[in-house]
């Protein structure tokens, strides 16, 4: 079989899709580890946003474009903004 395991009208070779999927899985694992390891708060939020983009691309490669669209806005934009606003508020109280 020269197409994907799931039948699609596109003819993407299995090997190429596999390479993409494995690469994305490794990138997501690395991104998640980076989010945990980075301790500087603002940088951690930026990494979280990048991680959101990685996760969105992962969903796309695994053929869930609808989840990609949600993850792009929630994971890469809205969640980081909510955390940044909270950090700004907490920092103001600390001073």
């Amino acid at each position: 079989m020269n197409t994907l395991a799931v039948n699609t009208p596109y003819t993407v070779p299995v090997a190429m899709m596999d390479v993409l999927q494995v690469t994305l899985l490794i990138l997501v694992a690395a991104g998640a580890t980076a989010v945990v390891l980075i301790r500087a708060r603002v940088r951690q939020v930026l990494m979280l946003s990048i991680y959101g983009v990685l996760l969105a691309v992962l969903f796309l490669v695994f053929q869930a474009p609808d989840v990609t669209l949600s993850e792009l806005t929630i994971g890469a934009v809205l969640l980081p903004i909510v955390i940044l606003l909270t950090l700004a508020k907490v920092r103001k109280r600390e001073q």
């Binding site: 609808d66 669209l69 949600s70 806005t73 809205l78």
Partner: peptide
Amino acid sequence: DPSGGFQGGVMLATAFV
């Protein structure tokens, strides 16, 4: 197509941000 209310809604909210 793979659109939907949830995806569209969060994107609209992003516009306000």
